[in-house]
Amino acid sequence: MKLNLYEDKNNMNEHVDVYYANMRPVIRQIIDSVNKDRPTLSGRPADEDLDDGEEMILDPSEIYYLDHIERKLFAYTKDGVFRIMNTLASCEEMLWTYGFVRVSKSNLINIYKIRQLKPDLNMKVYASFDNGERICINRSYKKSFNDYLQKMRGIM
């Protein structure tokens, strides 16, 4: 996508024009950013030694996956694991345009961060991420996962 930036120190009416062919997730993300509706997740380091009590803003595109363990939600990023105060269902609704899809009762994965999708010999299918971790794609979610991929390819 072509991006034009015009700097004018005297401009008192800053604005953004978006010319698009169809409403793709990336266009939706730009609109969300301009409207200040861009979803931001804030979290605290899961490791108590690193937690100084301050919340950090997490960029959804930096998150590999979300994991719901014992009623707590954790986001796994390159920089570490963060505890998030949202629910998994609200994150699923908020982040679907950012490539997040539900693959089990407790996992939401970012398809842009998947390095490889591969079945084991026991036929369980795993999504591998850059950080070396793997998340199992539950059979019950196989169809919705496939539908999501088809939908994303169609609207990209």
Partner: peptide, 18 residues
């Protein structure tokens, strides 16, 4: 195995398009 391969290719396509 074949379905997973197809899904993996689909993910590659989506990532490249992005």
């Amino acid at each position: 195995f074949s379905e997973t391969k197809k899904q993996d290719e689909l993910i590659r396509q989506i990532q490249q398009k992005k």
